[in-house]
Design a protein around this nucleic acid. Structure first.
Lengths: 215, 215, 215, 215
DNA sequence: TATGAATGAGTGTTCATTCAT
DNA sequence: GATGAATGAACACTCATTCAT
């Protein structure tokens, strides 16, 4: 019997994943309150009693979904630590990381909807987790800003903490904008949002001939 | 008799307002699904049947609450049409209108929570209404940007449509940031977010000695 | 003051009648459970509190309506006491009284609907009253039958009690049949039902060449 | 294992039947509006949520009850097609089928009450179904009458359509009459109604020495 | 381990009735 | 007397969760 020891366990892990998969999609498509435990179970042709062998209750699966979303966001922001040595390389890196984050949201509409819409107002615990995720994203952005300031690429007096959050908000707003567009027009729309955001980020709105900062 | 003519009517209007008041607060504090019709009625020491004399159903009161929020937002953005003739006056006006909007959100934590959190995922109709309100805010911001471009205060190639939405997202993010702070520290925190946002808006993050745009 | 003594009373009587009128029609058209106290009051442009000055409760107005229906039925069956001295006169009188009863039902679809449909299953008291009304109708019919038997116009062994009820059931069935017809076709349809019923009543279905009773 | 294969299914069907049984009796005894979903569930010692696993809503169970009643009525009227070749056999067959129908009503007081009382005024759909059932009964009766006319057992000018309905009304009236009687006296009462109805049907009320049709 | 039948707390909504004005 | 605002008992229906098989 010992040789089969891991098999059921593995099978369970697999099923647990599948439940999260299904719930992820369903929560995004129909919303938390319109997605019932039985909806999720039915999606996988499971008895809905079975669900409770894998998750304590309905909130638990939602937390699992949220955690997956957060993990997905984390993936993007690690592995490209701030370290550019020239201004040009710096700007390029910032654009790259921003684009990647942006792509995560626009590439998976479910993810954006879960984190921006459904996760909201369900439960304190969930809110705290999402908040934490955004804080992590902000911390990453902040690290880049601080690196830029340290190297003199960015304004010395920059409020890195708050600016980081503003930048993230812009990324999310861009993602929202892209998702509002018809799916056929999304890549073009994405390019526009990206360049509008990058321009705002590096130059601000100013720079006209009679601009406040031009004299 | 003539001077009491309107009283009954007024008393009704008054109660209706009180119901909206109570619902406004309760929806913000406990969320839509945790606020029951009977919760609202109990808050005003009314029988819950009474509620249905003033609102068709639970969704109706939520829409009323949302509409009040939207009206509040609209108030702020009218009455100060873009028209500055100098760069300095322009910047000042933009700061003023942004600050006012910002103050609405930070001045009434309920308002922000309703529109940002609770209004989301309840109902198509509600979402559409909130979406429309944000579109109006964006249109106002856009008008300012276009005026700035026309006068040469802002970059000619500015993507006014998208930048307007990015700016609004920054205002909301700032409001969120302030609401995260302890209530004692909010005015100081508000000042910081305001200046961070204004700086990002007009100058971007750049401007360091070795900044990308400095050469 | 004494000279106005009866006026309010009379006015009340009048209003009470109007309430019964309205209720009569509404109960017939929409049914008992779909007709609310406020429906009746609104019909007369009364406050619905006023209703309770004239009727104890909702059941009371229904009883009043039923009583009116019963009174209407009684009117028809009095004033033409059985007393025909010849077979032909007897048959004519029976036809006349049957036709009158029949006309009451077909002439006022509301009446039939109230007594046949709405009065049923509401309340013991109401059922008993309707039952009593039918008993009265049956008693009248029975008196005619007994007169017919006494004079030798009808079979001596006739079960007058039960036959009377069967005959009344036929009258009601005929009325139902007429009401099923399009309103344009009702008078023609009425004639057919009348002759079918009269034929059944006096001759039965038999009388064919090979009929059981023909030998 | 194969022999238990159907058991769970069967157990379900069984409970569903039991729910219909209970509802059938309760609707008959207390009426539709006085019978609550929880009343039915309690009768079977079920949680009232369980009810909804078997029926969509309260109307659905009522329709199920009505359909059972209709099925019961249909059973009686099939399997004895009109085909008697002699007048005596014809009369015997008509008596037999009438008696059977009559017995259904008098044998199950609930059935009569459901179809005659409770089914009325609840819902368009239900009314239409009951109406249809009566139409079917009428069609059967009519077929007998037409057969009788064709063979010359009955009057040639008989209005078979309407007379069929009149006869059915008499059967129902007889049933009603029996149900009015004390349960101890019902079989005797039943015999009287049957003979009164048969006599009316075949001979009419006439036949007295001085009867209208005797000359 | 998987199942799904059973459960009942919970909630939105209706409407007859009361009563202060 | 007339009114209609207020009331809350009553009820249909939902769905997360349990547990016997």
């Amino acid at each position: 019997m010992s040789f089969t020891y891991n098999v059921p366990r593995r099978r369970n892990e697999r099923l647990r994943e599948q439940i999260v998969d299904a719930a992820y999609r369903l929560f995004a498509e129909r919303g938390y309150h319109q997605t019932h435990v039985s909806t999720i179970a039915a999606e996988l042709q499971l008895g809905h009693g079975t669900f409770y062998r894998y998750f304590e209750n309905k909130l638990a699966i939602f937390v699992a979904v949220i955690d997956r979303v957060i993990a997905r966001l984390s993936e993007v922001t690690v592995g490209d630590p701030p370290g550019a040595e020239s201004a040009a390389a710096y700007r390029e890196q910032v654009e790259r990381i921003g684009a990647r984050l942006f792509d995560v949201f626009t590439g998976d509409p479910h993810l954006a909807r879960i984190v921006l819409v459904e996760a909201v107002g369900i439960d304190e615990l969930v809110s705290a987790r999402v908040e934490a995720a955004f804080s992590i994203m902000a911390a990453v952005t902040r690290a880049y800003l601080e690196h830029g300031v340290a190297r003199g690429f960015l304004r010395a007096e920059l409020d890195c903490e708050r600016t980081a959050r503003l930048i993230n908000a812009c990324i999310l707003e861009g993602a929202r904008g892209v998702l509002r567009a018809e799916s056929g027009a999304r890549s073009e729309e994405g390019a526009r949002w990206r360049s509008a955001a990058i321009a705002l980020l590096f130059e601000g709105v100013g720079g006209g001939a009679g601009a406040p900062g031009s004299t």
